[in-house]
Write a protein that binds this DNA or RNA. Sequence first.
DNA 1: GTGAAAGCGCTAACAT
DNA 2: ATGTTAGCGCTTTCAC
Lengths: 340, 340
Amino acid sequence: MGRRHPGAPTLEEVAARAGVGRGTVSRVVNNAAGVKESTRRAVQRAIAELGYVPNLAARSLAGQRADAVALVMTEPRWRQFAEPFFSEIVHAIGDALAGTGPQLLLTLVRSDAERRRFLEYARGGRVDGVLLMSVHADDPLPDMLAEARLPTVLMGRRSGDERVSYVDADNAGGARSAVAHLLATGRRAIATITGPPDMYVAQCRLRGYREALASAGLDTRPSWVAEGDFTIEGGHRAMTRLLERHPEIDGVLAASDTTAEGALEALRAAGRRVPEDVAVIGFDDFPLAERTAPRLTTVRQPLEDIGRTMVQLLLQEIEEPSVAWRHVILRTELVVRESA
Amino acid sequence: MGRRHPGAPTLEEVAARAGVGRGTVSRVVNNAAGVKESTRRAVQRAIAELGYVPNLAARSLAGQRADAVALVMTEPRWRQFAEPFFSEIVHAIGDALAGTGPQLLLTLVRSDAERRRFLEYARGGRVDGVLLMSVHADDPLPDMLAEARLPTVLMGRRSGDERVSYVDADNAGGARSAVAHLLATGRRAIATITGPPDMYVAQCRLRGYREALASAGLDTRPSWVAEGDFTIEGGHRAMTRLLERHPEIDGVLAASDTTAEGALEALRAAGRRVPEDVAVIGFDDFPLAERTAPRLTTVRQPLEDIGRTMVQLLLQEIEEPSVAWRHVILRTELVVRESA
DNA sequence: GTGAAAGCGCTAACAT
DNA sequence: ATGTTAGCGCTTTCAC
């Protein structure tokens, strides 16, 4: 492996050149107060002349901090990567970290080997904290990080009682308002296509659907619920099944915008007009919908807020390690795009 | 900032517990040879009992290596992020780095501030090398890294005489073979839509187009060349212009698949049938084409090979720092999908 | 305000 | 085969 350029000037050499002690140079480099202006200037000149660059490994070792945080992307094969949702959230986090904060490091964790390597990296103290995205219910990573006492913030949660800090959208609330909107616009035969039943986010959205119907005095029989998997194809298949069971359907809540996309395909293939015959509302996890179904009413997630909040929580936990877990649930917004 | 868990056991404590010297523990931890099996076992037990985790900052400092490489993503607003091309290449690099290699760290560099921060990070010795993607011609980052003597490998090049190692696709060759295919299938009125003229990749593709026509004894007047910008909209506009100038067009080389996409839209809007009336070939930087225009003939770039080769070059340069720049040009492949 | 000195936890070279 | 030692380059008291 590559040795770092050996002749690189050290703090000591800078000190010698400037005719001061190492402590003083350190103070100047770190913008610490309590250095006479003339001294500071002299040191800065020495730094410039020598082309001095602080060795961060040494700084980490002495200072007990990494000045970096990791954003972990799980998923064996991140197609997500290719999804605007992902891009948005990463940029939001990057923005939130702009300015003075630590360096943001994105890391792929797609296999056990990669998980091990990352854990070694993180527990080795090379990051001060970890942000996790779209973690599966059975992913052990969050708990392993927590056990290593590394500040950790999840995006979304794996279950109802998550033992790690997280930021999540109000999925149940979003579903409720979507269904309420369908009801308000006169729909009565409302079905839903869910996400994978083992994902908490999917459970919440389904619950919201049921609650909304229940509070309108309508009951939900199982045959109005079809299982999808957050893909276009899954949405297509589920919609097809629903149409067979209930040709009278006039409203659909899709658990993601990809699902909505698939549902639309199936509806059109069956000759239904949208939204005249059937209104479809999807969660726009993936603002993809903006392109493919721009006129669809959607439940929007505040991606920017989610990213900003995650960073905020993480920095807090880094600053003052505590035994508490912080949870933030952000409101979703119903974006009405057609008059159904 | 968060102090690393203070009570964390050190190598020394492990040594004490196992009743051996620190050197021995270090050897065991690093899987070095020359440790009696029984000793190794004892050390491993002590490690397990204490829950010892090596401090990587200390290792970096002593060992002069970071065991990490960065993959830098420039672009002020990475929409690219959302593009399959990007996803593919990242995964390819991740795969190539799997196994024993260093940790892969993706970093965003979207602004001057972020560039400075990353430079500090990289020059501070926290990575052993840097991979760069889609760098603009005027981006100073590669040169700054080179100046800092950090092993660096570019994907694509900024100009004909790049002073940094890079891996690139044979863009001119790809364009030549595409045009040759159009000619071979009887097309004669062949236009091209270029990318941004200040991008070297676009220049190469244009050159290939010209060379192919020239070697067929046809000459290329400027009016057959329209400037695009690698976007769908740009492709659309350029195609519209071309149709006005040369209604007799029967073949188009598009400098990207998004460009091809836009060209297709414009052709259809003008009532042309593809490929009956006009054949379109695009470079599929972004395998998007697989979805939107699955039946189009394309020039395919070997993304996996590019990723693998980049990693290979980088590891080589890390291993044996040299003054040479290594350049690899990978063959493209013409994927014929329709009988024009 | 500034210098000196004591680590931070590890690797690697050198003894043994 | 294993223990010992000398740094790696910085931050941070603690004197002055």
